[in-house]
Design a protein around this nucleic acid. Structure first.
Lengths: 128, 128
DNA sequence: CTGCATCCTGGGCGATACTG
DNA sequence: CAGTATCGCCCAGGATGCAG
């Protein structure tokens, strides 16, 4: 069955607090979220915690696990525990996670290609 | 004169705190920033404060002006004061501002096209 | 109409120290 | 090696009220 179109009064204007880009931005708003996703992606979708942390300068153990827990909670990342000594763990992007890497990489590419514009922001801020 | 390539030790890894996507995300991190930019864009690049506020549900006077000040500070938005009574003001996207609308619209489009994925995040979160 | 000042709360994030 | 617990700071951002 097909759904009847939403009455106007319930339709979200394109600039609401819950509009598409904001939902995406909220997902990416954590300080380390994007870097973790991107790094996992770079490593082919999986990494062990130690590796991961060493790959991201400034990332503390606490914030790493905290962020990973959130990503796990959202179904973007899976955690696998290998039963060995010493304990070994691996975090892996789920297929959903991989999907969200796409817009992230778009941002990444845009930023890299327009680094000059980003620099101008700082210049302007410093100037005034 | 041309610049010598940056020595490796100074080159930023792609997942640094100041990498391209994060700089972009920091710009967009304010709760109302993107909605204001997007709305200005929708209106052809300019709007008066009253209009603007009424266009964005939930946006308070305070947060609007505060955000606009920041955007002005960064050179993304211009403020023009018309000398009349009662005072009239117009905010306009600068060319730099227009440039940054581009990645924003990319996000917007992606989000709109993949709303189903965004919904899954909430489902997952609610489930566990 | 437009805009600033003030007060206050929540939560993100960092530092540190401890367990298995 | 991997992970947890606790404490405390800072600041984004909401409410309210005043001013040109």
């Amino acid at each position: 069955m097909t759904l009847a179109p939403l009455p106007d009064q319930y339709r979200q204007p394109p600039f609401t607090e819950d509009c598409a880009p904001r939902r995406l931005l909220r997902l990416f708003s954590g300080k380390w979220t994007t870097m973790i996703l991107h790094t996992l992606h770079l490593r082919g979708g999986a990494s062990r915690p130690g590796q991961l942390q060493r790959s991201i300068p400034g990332l503390s153990k606490k914030m790493m696990t905290q962020t990973l827990r959130e990503l796990e909670h959202l179904g973007l990342v899976e955690r696998e525990v290998m039963e060995v000594m010493p304990p070994a763990v691996e975090y892996r992007l789920t297929s959903l996670g991989q999907a969200f890497v796409e817009p992230l990489e778009m941002l990444y590419r845009w930023g890299a290609e327009h680094a000059a514009l980003l620099d101008r922001l700082d210049q302007n801020a410093a100037a005034s």
